[in-house]
């Protein structure tokens, strides 16, 4: 079977024949997808804020949109990192900010308020995914007060620690005597 990674193997090195199961869970894949989505959205907000404000009928708020873009990119990078849980919670918080900003634009005189309602629905849907992914990717490290095995008898010195200390002192005394 063809495996792409075999192309870069040095000649003679073992090549992949059959892949084993991955421990990546669906929630890890979701976190990854949300991370890339966040970066994509952030880039649009950072570099084309006018397009965003015009679509929403919120002209004049370009600086805010740019700031939101930076936030999205940071949260996206964090979601793709080892600390994905922190990134996803940052996204959940960001969804709240997005919703608040959109609600502020939902005024009777805004001719694009239909787009804002659509955007709010999208933010709500994404927020649910963010929340779900954040819940499911919580670190599985035991808490500080979790029950743990202790190893008080594992000195590693079969003859006892005092015997090692005495031997070390004798060697040091011998070395001092020689100098």
């Amino acid at each position: 079977m063809f495996h792409f990674s075999n192309i870069v193997r040095t000649r003679g090195d073992p090549k992949l024949v059959a892949g084993g199961p991955s421990l990546k869970r669906p929630e890890d894949q979701l976190a990854r997808a949300l991370g890339w989505f966040s970066i994509g959205l952030g880039v649009v907000e950072l570099f084309a804020p006018r397009r965003v404000t015009e679509t929403l009928g919120m002209e004049g708020h370009e600086t805010l949109v740019r700031a939101f873009g930076v936030r999205e990119i940071m949260a996206g990078i964090t979601s793709l990192s080892v600390e994905k849980n922190a990134g996803l919670w940052a996204r959940v918080g960001g969804d709240g900010l997005d919703a608040a900003a959109l609600l502020s634009g939902l005024t009777p005189d805004n001719p694009k308020k239909g787009n804002i309602v659509l955007a709010l629905l999208m933010v709500g849907g994404i927020a649910m995914l963010d929340y779900r992914a954040a819940q499911d990717t919580r670190p599985r490290r035991p808490t500080r007060d979790a029950r743990r095995k202790l190893y008080p008898n594992r000195s590693g010195f079969p003859k006892g620690i005092e015997s090692v200390r005495t031997a070390a002192k004798q060697i040091a005394a011998h070395a001092a005597g020689r100098t």
Partner: peptide
């Protein structure tokens, strides 16, 4: 043979790979 193979961040799998050969 079986081997633990790196596939990316936090993704190590127990794969089947070809046996190593004498190269030198």
């Amino acid at each position: 043979m079986k081997a633990l193979v790196w596939h990316g961040k936090e993704d190590i799998r127990c794969d089947t790979v070809t046996d190593p050969e004498i190269q030198d």
